[in-house]
């Protein structure tokens, strides 16, 4: 019942220790800038995957347009920090807010669309966002937006990852989260039990887009340069693959999936010509041999031994 119970204190300690270890290794020079780059990329991918998992894994709404929310966040933060010269925190918040407004807009079609049709509509939405960015000279058009100040570092990334996981995990463990899972399981039965499916579907798109926007801000302010092509259909597929590989409906799965697929792509960078061919084969093998992903829909349990999705039972 208390917020500072044993389990929570252990979690906070573990979070701080991981952070401290990475900081220490960076100061000692064990983690060089290349490793740091990959750590930040992994962090961005975790935020993207966990937020998409809320939409697709938990609520069952098939989305192929998650990169569009990231794109909107990246450009928003780019404009706020580079063109308006405002601090990073303003950029992050603006990115999240603007992306979540887009989430509301794309959430509305979900009220009428299901399955493959929704996937295609979100794909279309992603392409529209990309084409608008390409044709907008204020944000650099197809060439992209340059000279974005490099604010993103390990600290920002790490704590935003923690925040994302914390919020989405808690949401899922509440009756709101259970309602979302019920929508995935059986929409008609969920409605008959009093779940306002319209409200929850738009809500998860809004929350999911909010965090994808944050991921976009981190990306833009790390690489200093963004272009519309970076957030196309393939990026959406990459995020979806992480979610499916980790396990639909498993947050720990998304984290493991983001780490695993980021590492795979690091190794594949050594063979640029065959990179995508091997990636395709890996995807195919995962889908054939482990379509439920590494974790299925189960969570990795570090501190609480009592299982189940029900947060109350786990926090007694």
């Amino acid at each position: 019942m208390k917020i500072l119970n044993k389990k929570n204190i252990l979690s906070i300690l573990a979070i701080l220790i991981v952070y401290a270890i990475v900081e220490l290794l960076t100061h000692l020079g064990v983690i060089d800038s290349y490793i740091q780059l990959n750590l930040i990329l992994i962090g961005i991918n975790i935020i993207l995957a966990v937020s998409l998992n809320l939409i697709t894994g938990f609520t069952g709404q098939f989305s192929l347009g998650h990169a569009a929310f990231m794109s909107i966040g990246a450009y928003t933060s780019g404009i706020v920090t580079a063109k308006l010269g405002l601090p990073f925190i303003v950029g992050i918040i603006a990115a999240a807010v603007v992306a979540s407004i887009a989430g509301i807009i794309i959430g509305i079609p979900t009220l009428r669309l299901r399955g493959d049709y929704l996937a295609i509509a979100t794909l279309g939405f992603g392409e529209i966002v990309k084409i608008i960015a390409i044709n907008n000279d204020y944000i650099g058009g197809a060439v992209g937006l340059n000279d974005i100040p490099q604010y993103t570092n390990w600290t920002w990334t790490y704590f935003l990852v923690v925040l994302t996981v914390f919020i989405i995990y808690n949401f899922i463990k509440s009756y709101h989260g259970r309602a979302c899972i019920a929508i995935r399981e059986d929409e008609i039965a969920a409605e008959a039990m009093g779940v306002n499916t319209t409200y929850y579907k738009i809500l998860v798109f809004t929350i999911g887009a909010f965090f994808a926007g944050i991921a976009g801000a981190l990306y833009a302010n790390y690489f200093s340069f963004i272009k519309p092509d970076s957030f196309g259909f393939m990026k959406s597929v990459d995020i979806l693959v992480i979610v499916v590989f980790g396990g639909l409906g498993s947050i720990s799965g998304s984290i493991i999936g983001a780490i695993a697929l980021s590492l795979i792509s690091v190794f594949l960078q050594n063979i640029p010509e065959l990179r995508m061919v091997i990636y395709a084969v890996i995807l195919f093998l995962i889908m054939v041999y482990r379509p439920q992903g590494i974790m299925g829909n189960v969570e990795l349990k570090l501190f609480n031994k009592k299982g189940g999705l029900n947060g109350y039972a786990g926090s007694k």
């Binding site: 697709t56 493959d116 395709a280 995807l283 889908m287």
Partner: peptide, 25 residues
Amino acid sequence: IRNSTRIAALITAISVSLFLEYGMM
């Protein structure tokens, strides 16, 4: 994957697409 979930089937189709495109390249 004929009896898999829609999402698995879709990702498989995307993997075949990537394989053909980059295999040709």
